[in-house]
């Protein structure tokens, strides 16, 4: 058992509401502080980028995954990084990409950030653990 708090990077590769990956990742991340750890970076890749869809509107009796990610960002001060290459392909664009490609509305908003894979590698190097939540 580690004697001091660890920092975690999570890679989320599963689409929300299609697979359990997002639920599993949130459940895990939310359980970290009780043991003195924290999630420092969440990196969304593959279909996991859909977790950042700003217009996500689930039925009220289901967990609101977007809200849960935002809450995680608030409580653990973690970065919510979205692979730009995976996201833009799939129609998830922030303000800058929306303007650049001439689309009417952004579909991805802060605290989610579009970033490159270099950020995933940085997170893997800097944090104590990397855990992958896959579809």
């Amino acid at each position: 058992m580690a004697s001091q708090g660890l920092t975690y990077a999570l890679m989320v590769q599963g689409a929300p509401y299609s697979q359990q990956a997002s639920h599993s990742a949130l459940r895990f991340a939310e359980a970290l502080p009780a043991q003195g750890h924290r999630v420092a970076t969440v990196f969304f890749y593959h279909d996991g980028v859909y977790n950042a869809a700003s217009m996500m509107t689930p039925p009220t009796d289901e967990p609101h995954l977007l809200e849960r990610w935002r809450a995680l960002h608030q409580t653990q001060q973690c970065e919510l990084l979205v692979c730009v290459a995976s996201a833009v392909r799939r129609g998830l664009l922030d303000h800058g990409e929306t303007k650049r490609h001439g689309h009417p509305h952004p579909t991805l908003e802060a605290p989610f950030e579009l970033t490159g894979l270099g950020q995933l590698m940085q997170a893997a190097h800097h944090h104590d653990r990397l855990i992958t939540f896959a579809p």
């Binding site: 043991q35 750890h37 653990r129 990397l130």
Partner: peptide
């Protein structure tokens, strides 16, 4: 959580 902390790496 404890298992991820007590082991050195996790493979999915």
């Amino acid at each position: 959580v404890a298992l991820t902390a007590s082991t050195d790496r996790t493979v999915s």
